[in-house]
Structures are given as C-alpha cells and as structure tokens.
Nucleic acid binder design. Structure first.
Lengths: 195, 195, 195, 195
DNA sequence: TATGAATGAGCCTTCATTCAT
DNA sequence: GATGAATGAAGGCTCATTCAT
C-alpha cells in the first residue's frame, strides 16, 4: 500500500533542495537525502526528475489559486478583491522563502512553467483575475474600454516582477509593503473613479 | 589576431539555436555548426557555454537600452516617452522572433538573467524607465505619491508578461496591437490628469 | 509450510514471460504478476532470478531425458531408438512454443546452459544418446570406427540447430517434418549398412 | 579526421574483455581501458554497447565466410570442400581462444546472433555450405534424396556443438582432432558412395 | 587562428533483493 | 507463508572542454 504522505514529503524536500541549488544542479539523490529516503523510492511516486518539478508547480499553483479564490470571495467589490489579491500574492511568497525562490527563479524555464504541463494552472490564475475585472466592469467600477485580458497580464506581470526583484534582491525589504502601491497604481489605471 | 566578426557570428548562431532547441538542449557543437565553424573555435572567443548566453543577453540588452534611450529622447514629455517606450519594446520583439523566444523563454533561468552577470544591463533599463518617471514627476505630469521604483518594475513586468504570453501563445496576434492599451492603463495609473 | 505447487506455478509463469520478453528483459515482478503472486513470494522458493532460469532448465531437461529414455526403451534396436529420439526431440519442442523459445533462444547464455549448474542435465542427455550408439555398436549396427562421443555431439548439434532455425524462422513450417531426414542422414553416417 | 584504426582496436579489445567477463558483465569502461582510450571515445565509433557486439560478430563472421569461401575453392570436388571446411571451422576457433569463447558462448543470446542484425552474415555461411552440397549433388557425389537445406543445418549444428563443447570443456583436447571424424560421418551420411 | 578527435566527470534510472508487517 | 514498499548499487551515455596538430 503506497504511503500517501510520501509524494508530499518528496515535494517539500524538492522545494528546499531546488531553492538551495537550482533545479539543474540538484541531483535526485539530493532530494532523496533531504526527504530521508532512498533515491529509488522517489521513482515509486514520480516518473522522472522533471515530473517532480511539474507536479510541484501544479500543486502549489492549484493550492494558491484555490486559496486566493476563497479569500477574495469575501470582499465587497472587485476593487477590494484586487487589493486583497495583490496583498495575498505577496504574502504567500513572503511567508515561504524557499517556495518563493523556486517559483520566481527556478521555475522560469519557459517550457516547464507557462508552457507545457503547467499551462492549465497558470491559465486558471489568469482566469480568476480576469473574472474579477469583468465583475468590476459589470458593476460599473472598471472602465468599459479596458481590455481585461491585457489588464490581467499586466497585473500578473507587475506582481510577478515585484516578487522576482524582491527574491533576487535578497529580500532586503518587505515585499508586502509594496502591495498597496501596486494595487493603487493598477486600480487607478483601470477603475472609473479615482481610487 | 582575433577575428572581430567571429563573436558576433557565434552569438547570432546561438540565438537561432537556442530559439530552436532551448539553452539546455543546445550543444556547443550545434552552435558551431550553425555558425559554420569548429566547436573548438568557440572557445577562442567565449570562456564557457554559459558565457555565450550571458554575453548574448548583455549585448542585446545594452543595444536595446541604447536604442530605446535614443528613440524616446525626441519625445516632448515623459508621458509621450513612456508611450513610445512601450511601442518600441513590443516592436523589437515582434521584429526578431528568434530573439524574442530566447529573451522571453530561454533566458529566464534566474541566476543567469536578472541575477549575476547580466544584472547591470537589466538595471540600466530599469534606470531608464525610472528616470523618465522622475522627469514626469518633476514636470508635474506624474503624481508625486507614485513610488517610481515600484512603478518601474510594474511597467517592466507588465510589458514582459505581455511579451511572454505572446511568445508562448505562438504569436497568434500582433503584439504591438497591445502597446496602446498597456501604455494607457499604466499612464492612467501614475499620471496626474486623465490621459 | 511451503506450498508444493508454488514453485511449479512460478516456473510455468517464467516460461511464458521469458518467451515473451527474453530473460534479461523480464523483471521478477513480471513473473510474479504472471503467476498471480507478489514478487517477494518468489524469493521464498527461489534464491535469485538466475535460480529460476537454472531450475526451469534443469527440471525441463530432467523431464525430457526421463521421457525420452522411457519412450525409446520400447524400440527394438539402436537405429530405431535414434529415429524415435529425433522424432521426440522435435515433437516436444513443437508442442510447447513458449518452452521452445526459451530453450532454444533465451537459455543460450553459455554460462547458464551447458556450463555451470545445468551441465549435469545436459550431460545425462548426451549420455543417453551415447549409450544408444554404444548399444548399436555392440549389436553390430553402428560402425566400430565411429567415435560415439563425437557422434553424440554431432547428433545433438544437428537437432539443436534444426530446432533453433525453426524457432527463429517463426515456425513457418513443421519441425517434425524434418525428423526423418535428420535421422536418415545421421544413421547413414554412422551405421554399418545402408539405412 | 576520425582514426580509421580505432574501431578495429575497440573490437579487438572487446573480444578480449567479453571473453574474460562475458558481455553482460563487461562495462564499456572496461573495453575502453583494454583499448587504452577513454570511454567516451568508444561512442565516437559505436552507437551503443550493443553495437560493439553486433559489429564484432558481423565483421568476424563476414571475414570467416570470405576466408572459407576462398580456401575451399581450391579443392577438387564437393566432398573435399566439405572436409576442408570442417577443418577450417575448427582451426579458426582453435587459433583464437578469445574469439572462440565470445562466438560460442557470449554471442548466443538469440536475438543478437542468428536473429536480428547478424542474420545476414549467418545466412551467407549457410548459403556457402548449401552451395557446396548442391554442387556435389550436380556432380553425382551427393545423394539426390538429400535435402540440402536440412543437411546444411545439420553440418553447421554438428560443428557448432563440437566447438561449444570444446570451449566449455576448457579446451582440454585439440578440437581439430575431431575434424576428420565429423567430416567423415557427415559425408557418409549424405554422399553416394562410401567415403 | 582554427580544427575536431579525444577526454572523463557526472547522473538519472532500473530492478533484484530485503524485510517489516 | 505472503506481501509489496523500500532500498541502493550499478553503469551506459552525453557533452562541455581541452589540446595536439
């Protein structure tokens, strides 16, 4: 009977190892040692080394989108939802430094991230943002001339770049301190009234 | 006497090869063949395979920043400069598909891109954008409460994400068509008056 | 208490699996699955994977020699016994295609077949043939100048090659059809009178 | 410019190593060391480890068939040719103990020997034997009722088994001493007149 | 300067075997 | 006895880099 906790243990170990050495410079045996198991055991739960990375990303991304969706649903309107989303996006990365390193730096080999197996999870985050913007437009809070698909990518790109700069800059400041400014500028860019 | 054209030929060949196979799946001998030289010759001009990537990026980035700086200098004010910058950013990528693929996808192995040897070139692009925003603020066109460093990263991230999505989406539309919308939303976000 | 049928079930499963995939490309777990048991169970009855092959061969070979000895004992003289032996040798292989594949193809990794643990069983087949030839020589049916040890190997080699060619040739004809010709040529080669 | 002697050096080294350890227990690095080169160099001349074995066999077999064809062509008639062929078959193996070990023992993993890539070379040896028998039949030396294809396999099988027994028996006697007896028995089996 | 044959370190993956349950 | 999850040794192959020519 396969151990239901093993995959999670392996993924958690992989996050730490990838954060430390980078994906390409991490050996499968490193992950195994970090997880406290034999390297062969990894292949009982993952098909290849790549599969670990892909699964890791999918899981984290799916968790994040579900979490974000849940959290913003309580907000009164689209503008508040965007503000909350930005704050959460930064918070989650700030809370888990290893994950931040992996997500912002190691995972950016295009074919494994936005492209390929993980495309679906990224899309669902984009869809979440777009749906909030559309909702805001319906409610008369977002300007009708805003192309929401483009605005979605702008917001994601803006948050993503702030996060990446923060990770690469050795986290010498608090990322969440930038949340209000980011949300404010973006919302002023797309909202009907001054915000 | 070193051939002054060889490094450029090698870089040009590398762009084509990396765009085709990705960095990690490109062999040094592939680049040599594409450049019409022997693989050993590459090591007369580049220290390692990584050095090709780093040099490639530095050169392209330096060229781009110089080009951008020159082009926007003719614009009447900061807002016009931003509009022009966005248009140029998209144009240059749309004009050279191989370069776009390499810059947006292959170069994103953090330690080689924003981090490490290329950090300086990225910084100078950021500095250019920030200087325009500061100029706009001095001229009373940009709101005084805008943190220009953060706004700079937001604009870069927004453009970058649009570009990445376009590359990964197989370039099924014209990237430059998004330029006006991106500039408009960003400027509305940071400018004093409606734009 | 060991199950007395298990070893036989495992060997039967192994014959099918080896015939399908070859010895080196068959996993112990494949044999276990074919036998409907867990792979660990195999090690209750066999020391190693090699042991399965060796035991398989010993058992089949011992069965075959006993069967052959019994069958030819009813024949009136040495020449008739040889004829019957050749017919039986081909029949038994034609009757069990999986066994034929394993014996003629998979088992030919010298050190596991004629050499090593199985040498005794092969020897006893050789001894059976030699004893028939010697008997024929005593009875004045086989020429006195025939070196029976050499003739034994010749006959075995001849039958074995016919069988191997038949297996490798996808069994596109009936192996037993060759029995008369093989026996006739061999006997003409060693007998006193024309046969 | 590839070294034209390297493949031969590698094959010669492989024969020695395979004879010593067997194919499956020989590492590519063993062959490299025996050949006095780096293991990577082997892959400049051979695609895989298997490719070494297949090429080895093809080359040796093609050489042997050409050699045999040339040697027997000087003999006066088919019967003399068969006698010479048997003598040569045993001589060549007796002369090169390492090759004998490899050919008679290591190469007998059906799919690599008679089957697969080497089938053509084996066939051409069979064809040579058959052509001699047919020639003898035309000349009235071989009985017309002899099925030459079957007789060919019998002769090959007989020689092959003698050779294998000799190799496995640690070569405690002279293989060539058996040549006359083998030829005599076979020829008596297929020839028209007593031989 | 240019070549490209040679090098050899490096690592993912398989699978026979073990052993706690 | 039976299980099957866990183990970990083993090795074929790649390819960046070197260097004799």
């Amino acid at each position: 009977m396969p151990d239901p906790d093993k995959p999670q243990q392996i993924i958690d170990a992989a996050v730490r190892v990838f954060a430390r050495n980078g994906y390409y410079h991490s050996r499968v045996s490193d992950i195994a040692r970090e997880a406290g198991i034999a390297s062969g055991t990894i292949y009982l739960y993952f098909k290849t080394k790549d599969d670990i990375l892909v699964t890791l990303f999918r899981e984290k991304m799916a968790d994040w989108v579900a979490h974000a969706r849940r959290e913003i649903s309580g907000e009164p309107d689209a503008l508040a939802k965007i503000r909350r989303l930005v704050a959460l996006h930064f918070q989650v990365l700030e809370t888990d430094p290893d994950l931040a390193e992996v997500v912002q730096v190691e995972l950016r080999q295009g074919h494994k991230f936005f492209r390929g197996a993980s495309a679906h999870e990224v899309s669902s985050y984009f869809a979440l943002i777009t749906s909030v913007l559309d909702e805001g437009m319906q409610a008369g809070l977002i300007r009708r001339d805003v192309p929401t698909k483009i605005a979605t990518k702008m917001l994601f790109g803006a948050m993503d770049q702030l996060a990446t700069s923060w990770v690469l800059g050795k986290r010498t400041y608090r990322l969440t301190d930038a949340a209000d400014a980011v949300a404010a500028i973006f919302l002023k860019g797309v909202a009907v009234h001054a915000v």
